[in-house]
Each structure stands twice: as C-alpha cells, then as structure tokens.
Design a protein around this nucleic acid. Structure first.
Length: 470
RNA sequence: UCCUCGAUAGCUCAAUUGGUAGAGCGAGCGGCUGUUAACCGCUAGGUUCUAGGUUCGAGCCCUAGUCGAGGAGCCA
C-alpha cells in the first residue's frame, strides 16, 4: 500500500508534494463558507494531519455529511504550508473518499475526554484515542529497546514453555490447563476408570496436572547453563484474585539468566538495563511521552530523566529496615526484621528517603524463594529487588543456589518435594556454575514510562479477575 | 480475598429532610467563522445497576446480589 504515513507528512513532507493519506477522522470543523477542516490520524505518530477540503470538490455536499468523528477516509492531496497556527504543513485535498462511516449518534468515542473505566469497556476502539495510541507506540518502543539491549550484549532469546507441569517456585496460583470434561465431573461423572478419586490426571491431556506458566526462570536456567547469557520475553499467568492497579492475570515478563554471574553482576546488569531502555524510549517517543507528561503525570519526564542520569541506591534489606525504624514515620504495618516490606515501606524509601530507584539485597531467607543462594550468615539469601518511585517493585532477581545439597535442603525447608525438581537439581549435579538472573514486569515498566495509574491501561487487552473480554 | 466508596441521559456528573428527574459535553437541525477541545441558538434524549422490602409516596431508607473504582494482601 503506497500510502503516506501521517508521521512522514508532518515531519518531512515538503510543500508541493502530492500525498495519499489514509486514516481515521478525529474531528471535523465544517464551514458553511464552503470548506471544512479534517483532523486525520493513522496511528503512525501522536499528531493528526489537518486536511483542508474545498467545498467545490465533486460531491462535497454529499460526502462531507458522511465524514464524522471515527470515519475512515482516503485523502489524495497536496502538501502546503499552513497559514494557521498549530501545524507546519497541512494537506489540501484534491480527492476525498469515505472508506467507512461512523454513525455519530452511536459511535462511542467523542471529541471530549473519556474516563479510563469507560474506555476499558471499549477496548476495540480505545486504540483510536490519543492515550492508547501513545501507549501502543511506547509499548512497542519499549519492547524493541528490551530486545536491542540484550541482542547488543550477545544474549540469546530463548522461548520457554507457556504450558507447564511444574508449579515453579511454588509461588503464584496456576491457571489449570485441562481437556477433562469439567461439566461431567461436576455432575458426578468419572474421568478415570477404576479410581476412587473423581479426577485422575493420568487421563488428562498431558498425563499429569498442567497449568499456564508463572515464570520461565527455571527453564531459562537450563539454557543459561548451556549456551551462556539468555533471556526470555513472553506472557506469564497468575490466577491470583488480585484486584489492584498493579496486577494482571496475564502479563509480559522479561527474564534474563546469566551463567558465571554473582549478585553484584546481576545488579549491574539490572540497573544498566532499566536505565538504557528508559533512555531509548525517551529518545524514540518524545511526542507520546510529552502527552503523558502533560495529561497524566506532570512529574513524568523529570522523573524518567532523573532515573537515566543517576546511579541507583544499593543497600541491604537489613540496612533498609534500620532506615525505616529510624524514620520517625508511623506506618500502618510495623517494621521488623524478618517480615517482608509493605508497599508503604517501599514507597517511603523510593519516594521520600532516597527519591530515586533503590536496589535492596540480602533478604531474610524465610520470605524468599527456594532457589535463591544462601548467604554464609545462614539468615539471608542473595536476592535483589529493584524498587522505583510510584510503582514499587519492577524487578525481582537473585543469584541462584548452585550447590546441590544446599538446594535440596532449601527445597525441603520450603515444603517442596525435591523429586519434582529432579531436572533442576541435575543442573547442580553435572557441571554446576554460579549464575543469576532477574525478572522485569513489562506493564509495570510501562506504568513507570507513561505515568498511567492503572496497569490495565498499559496492556491492549487486560486480563484480571472477572475481566477477559475482547 | 479484605476495607472504603460508587452505579442517574451516549459521556462526565448534580438532585436539600423521602415529595413531578437536572446541567455541561456529545448528537440532530439552523446560524457564523482559515478553523484547530471552534463559537452561538433551538430540539430530541431516562424502566435512576438487578431482585426484594419499608412507606400514602423511594434516585434517596433497609436486605441480598452484580459490576466498577481506590487502598491492602499476594507479587512482576
């Protein structure tokens, strides 16, 4: 399709050139003086191109009525310098074709602003709004920056399975994947023969209980311990009944895993990663981010530049506890060594005490996962969380326990059956190496990048409890 | 899952102590204008989330439910 993108027309088209612009009408300003202005957007950039339509064009009286907010049009015209304010150039139409009308009496999107709650119910149309068009472009730029960061450093992109039979980490509720007939089971039927249990997973599709992955980490470790630095980047599923502005049932996660890395290397990579991808998106999407800064979060650009330009604060969990205890703040949840930090504690550290991203390390072992490497103090593990203002945790990572016997005892301590993780343990039995990795939540990073308050507005089609339309 | 709040015109909201349902925007029509969240006038538009209950009378009070928002937990 040899159409001309609005982005190109606005940025570089010279007066006198002929263009073929196609897109959706945002507004029409009609003049009975015999002409009309159309604002046409095709998603290629934040801005619209202003199209000037002369009333003397053939059939004007007929088709100008069909052009309303939301209609799709094809404009053949000439780029001219704009005498009006607000745009460098505009398009003087020679030919206008209405490709699809949008009945103004029923088209849900109006020229005025809508609430995000309303737009979530119109997920099929909300990409046509300023906010969600900008979000789509920022999300794309962010994903590109993520791949570029790892590819530039020689990481391999590894695809880990979406359907899994190992309840990885023991954390996170799995969505079950089954071909068993639920209705039949519910009515007292049996999906198995000769078993007293109503459900015999040996007869299920995979021959055992299966679910959607909650993390690709364990599989990523397999490849890190074979082909070097790797990363996964794909959807992740949590069946938790979380109803917050920071949780989704289906979200995208980036999980690098690096052999021969210790915790300090892991932190260095995580910090470099966050700062680099933010910088890349700042460079690539200035118009979109300016919009978010103006309409959504007035401190957005300032805070993003601050993150890019300053080193992250690094301290241990124990040091953080001391700071919180000495803060003089009254917290709803008391601070004490050995319990996990609450949202209010994280926010105090990132938003009030340090006013920038913080990496906390060496958490108590009893509040962290089995695979994290135990410190010599036998009280803490080599975990690290990257906390940022407004959002909280966007990265959780650790150096992995590479010592076979210690890993087995940690599994037992966490109530896991080592036999279920036989292949994970064999990585430690045969040619084990120190290694580390972390996970970054894509949509939380988008919250940070755009200032959008609800994570459901940072993914095209959000999945959350009672929410899976479109 | 817990706490708090909410659901009224297409959208955002108002409605005094329980007493005939309102505005702005949007839409339709008309006017005006190189306009740019255009502007001015007129018109239409309602089973007040659902099901019960109290009352002479319920948008408002009571009970249950559904959905939504914010906060919390879990986490990324």
């Amino acid at each position: 399709m040899p159409r001309d993108l609005v982005a190109k027309v606005l940025k570089s088209s010279q007066p006198g050139s002929t263009v073929d612009v196609r897109g959706w009408v945002r507004t029409k300003r009609e003049s009975k003086g015999g002409f009309a202005f159309l604002e046409v957007n095709d998603g290629s950039c934040f801005g619209n191109v202003q199209v000037v339509v002369d009333g003397k064009l053939p059939g004007y009286e007929t088709w100008i009525k069909e052009i309303t907010t939301g209609a799709s049009v094809a404009i053949l015209g000439e780029v001219v310098e704009s005498p009006g304010k607000g745009q460098r150039v505009e398009v003087r139409a020679n030919e206008v074709r209405v490709l699809g009308t949008a009945d103004s009496a029923t088209y849900p999107l109006q020229k005025k602003g809508h609430s995000y709650e309303f737009l979530r119910e119109k997920a099929h149309l909300r990409p046509r709004t300023n906010t969600f068009g900008a979000m789509a472009r920022v999300r794309n730029a962010l994903c590109d920056a993520i791949h570029r960061f790892f590819q530039d450093r020689g990481f391999l992109y590894v695809h880990t399975p979406i359907i899994t039979t190992s309840d990885c980490e023991g954390a996170g509720q799995l969505f079950q994947v089954t071909t068993l007939d639920i209705a039949k089971l519910a009515s007292g039927g049996r999906e198995s023969s000769g078993s007293t249990s109503p459900v015999d997973y040996a007869h299920d599709f995979f021959g055992k209980k299966a679910g959607l992955t909650v993390s690709g980490q364990l599989e990523a470790e397999i490849f890190a311990c074979a082909v070097g630095d790797v990363y996964t980047f794909g959807p992740t599923f949590r069946a938790e009944n979380s109803n917050t502005t920071r949780h989704l049932s289906e979200f995208w996660m980036v999980e690098p895993e690096m052999p021969f890395y210790e915790l300090e290397d892991d932190m260095d990579l995580a910090e470099s990663f966050v700062r680099t991808i933010i910088k890349d998106v700042l460079n690539r999407c200035p118009d979109d981010l300016a919009f978010f800064n103006e309409r959504i979060e007035p401190t957005l650009l300032e805070s993003l530049h601050h993150i890019v330009e300053h080193d992250f604060i690094r301290l241990t969990y124990t040091e953080a506890i001391e700071i919180l205890l000495k803060s003089g703040q009254t917290f709803e949840y008391p601070v004490s060594w050995g319990t996990d930090l609450q949202s209010e504690h994280e926010r105090y550290l990132t938003e009030q005490h340090f006013k920038q991203p913080v990496i906390l390390t060496d958490y108590p072992r009893q509040i962290k996962s089995f695979y994290m490497r135990c410190n010599d103090d036998s009280k803490t593990v080599r975990a690290m969380d990257v906390l940022v203002p407004r959002i909280g945790e966007i990265i959780g990572g650790s150096q992995r326990e590479e010592r076979h016997d210690l890993l087995v005892s940690r599994m037992q301590e966490c109530g896991l059956n080592p036999e279920d993780y036989w292949w994970y343990l064999e990585l430690r039995q045969y040619g084990t190496v120190p290694h580390a990795g972390f996970g970054l939540g894509l949509e939380r990073t988008l919250q940070l990048m755009t200032g959008m308050h609800n994570i459901r507005d940072c993914i095209p089609f959000p999945r959350a409890p009672k929410t899976a339309d479109f």
